[in-house]
Design a protein around this nucleic acid. Structure first.
Length: 420
DNA sequence: TCTGGGGTCCTAGGACCC
DNA sequence: TCTGGGGTCCTAGGACCC
């Protein structure tokens, strides 16, 4: 059996922990540039706010219902996520952090008759320890655990947890689940499935996996088996990322090369930092820039370039220089750029790096320097020391007009409580 | 005026090998 | 008129996840 533990409206719940005024009222959390809605409280959901919808299209609705609106605060969410995950990992040796707000637990060896009680205890414990409410779905496969979670979230009478056994009992429930809500069935497949007369999960579970594999792909065939209670996806070990992307939309349109260079250098430096954190080297880097495709009246331009490093590296200086070199190659004067990004690719473990016979790697890498930079930033806070080229004003930065504090990760921003 | 960011996996098709 | 058989690797693009 598997359990899927999922934090309810996670970003909103994090904000509520430190600001009780947000409880019981509609709350929205916005994307990076205060651009889109990326989290909604239940109250906001029932008012009709849609995930991913631009804020400016919802201004009237926000004003009308006096909705609380917040910029995203990923420092806070990341730290709260760590707390929840640490506690959850104490429940089973077999666990997988699936996303910032979800964890799969392997329940082998747990007494089946007590799973329900067990789920209730887990919910209570997480709520008490972190003030984050979670929902728990349990099933014989990951897909069924996800489906059980779908029901646990939707029906208040289930009190936040639900177990989906396989066989007839599960089938009876799955006919209430739209095919598009199944884990792994997205918009495209669900449209295609509907055109074939398959509208809910039970119908998909009863369809022929071999035929569906031909019509769609292996993944959908596996999903069918999983819905039938035959496990195809196991608990996965945490592995190093295979690529690292840092990208942002700008707060305003950028035309000058120098400003763009600063942004790209900044992204490259962040990516390099992440790279060293996971003990990897990168073989190459891709840089991209683009104008806003929403502004149909502006001239459109989008381009990217991939550059290989002379050898696998985790050196910020080399990575930064290469990023700027790439930018030079794709930059065109006369466009209003809205977004840029840097992607590190062909990542390998720094323990298994392949040296180049013809290159003296010490002349390329600044290992000692990188180490010192990382240590200083660890000790005195992120960006305590940084590259000059990344800090020339940062006018490309996006808006974060209504951001809560870093309550849990910055001594200067601890929660203040006033007593009457 | 204003439209997120960060990932993984699969497939088809092309290029290439003998 | 007729034009082999069997394979690998790489890439771009699509679909999906949160």
């Amino acid at each position: 059996m598997f359990a899927l533990v999922d934090c309810n409206n996670f970003y909103v719940s994090c904000e509520r922990v430190f600001n009780p005024r947000l409880v019981n009222i509609p709350v929205l959390v916005l994307s990076n540039n205060d651009g889109c809605i990326i989290a909604r409280s239940n109250e906001a959901k029932s008012l009709g706010f849609k995930m991913g919808d631009p804020v400016f299209k919802n201004r009237d609705l926000i004003r009308k219902h006096n909705v609380a609106v917040l910029s995203s605060n990923f420092q806070l969410y990341g730290d709260m996520s760590n707390r929840v995950m640490t506690l959850l990992s104490g429940f089973s040796p077999d666990y997988e952090i699936y996303s910032i707000d979800e964890m799969f637990l392997g329940l082998e060896g747990f007494e089946k008759s007590k799973l329900n009680e067990y789920a209730k205890q887990m919910r209570h414990y997480i709520l008490k320890s972190t003030h984050i409410p979670v929902s728990i779905g349990i099933g014989p496969t990951k897909t069924l655990a996800k489906a059980a979670n779908f029901f646990a979230k939707r029906y208040p009478m289930l009190e936040g947890s639900y177990i989906l056994q396989s066989g007839n009992e599960a089938m009876a429930k799955l006919c209430h689940m739209p095919v598009g809500d199944i884990w792994g069935v997205g918009r495209k497949s669900s449209e295609k499935l509907k055109s074939l007369g398959i509208h809910h999960a039970e119908q998909l579970a009863k369809s022929d996996p071999l035929m569906m594999r031909k019509k769609f792909n292996v993944v959908l065939a596996k999903i069918i088996y999983e819905l039938r209670g035959i496990s195809c996806f196991g608990i996965e070990e945490e592995e190093a990322r295979k690529s690292i992307l840092v990208s942002r939309s700008f707060g305003q349109k950028v035309e000058s090369f120098e400003v763009l260079r600063e942004a790209v250098a900044h992204f490259a430096a962040n990516a390099a930092e992440k790279l060293r954190q996971q003990n990897s080297y990168a073989g190459g880097i891709s840089i991209f820039i683009r104008t806003s495709h929403f502004n149909v009246n502006d001239a459109q331009y989008s381009n990217s370039i991939y550059l290989q490093f002379p050898k696998e590296t985790d050196d910020s200086i080399l990575i930064l220089k290469t990023a700027v070199q790439g930018l030079k190659a794709i930059y065109r004067l006369g466009y209003k750029y809205k977004k840029a990004g840097v992607m590190l690719l062909e990542l390998t473990s720094n323990q298994l790096a392949q040296e180049d016979f013809f290159i003296d790697s010490d002349k390329i890498d600044n290992k000692a320097l990188m180490h010192v930079i990382d240590v200083i930033n660890e000790k005195y806070g992120r960006k305590a020391i940084d590259f000059a080229i990344c800090n020339m004003g940062k006018i490309w930065r996006g808006r974060q007009s209504i951001k809560s504090k870093a309550y849990t990760t910055n001594w200067k921003e601890l929660l203040t409580v006033y007593a009457n």
